[in-house]
Amino acid sequence: MGIFNVIGKYVVLMGKVFSRPEHVSVYRRRVLDEMESLGLNSIGIVSLVSVFMGAVLMLQMCINFESPFIPRELMGYATREVMILEFSSTVVALILAGRVGSSIASEIGTMRITEQIDALEIMGVNSASYLILPKIIATMIFFPLLAVLSIIVGLIGGYVITLVTGIVIIDTYIEGLQMDFKIFSVVYALIKMIVYAFIITSISGFYGYYARGNSLEVGRASTKAVVVSSVVILMMDLVITQISYL
């Protein structure tokens, strides 16, 4: 019963979030601000994680596919595919669920317990839309760019580890990266990232918006937001993967 109640409340909140904004220019400004705070400020962590992911992927491929029957170009190819299909979208989304999701839930939750949301309501502002919609739009625009960044930086990580360890010849790695490239893989990764952006922002916004009580509750809302977002991201990964290969 509890889960249906939560889903019902979530759907009602999304109805409020996507109702017509009061003043479009105010929302436009907020979208730009949110792009900076949720997107631009995540570039560092995404780059850092991606460079190591790319390097580790390349190493694992080389170590575990050590066979005379497997061409060495496939190491670069496999690194690229895994990076594009899963790591740059799903793993980066999980990282962002931690960073961005907790920040959104705690920001909105704090606004709730300090009556800032009540103040917006009293003024006649649709608080759900004002607070959550710009974040959703900003992340749905910016997160796919982070996915592209993650792919590029990840492949650079693979390049660097290849160069440093000499585990395969660098030209072989580059040849592998160029092998059988399908643009669909990148489009698929971007679509996934757009879906994940919506999941992270809307779920975190939901838990923050309905936070009650004191700072402990805000902390709990923040934790719930991260856990639920992560689980839903993994579930949606399965669904989207299944759909895309039908």
Binding site: M111, T114, E115, Q116, D118, A119, E121, I122, M123
Partner: peptide, 20 residues
């Protein structure tokens, strides 16, 4: 209610100013 709320001002216990 929105129309009436334009005519309402409220001062909250903690001020409830928007922090950002």
């Amino acid at each position: 209610r929105k129309a009436i709320r334009r005519d309402v001002g409220m001062i909250f216990q903690g001020g409830a100013l928007l922090d950002s």
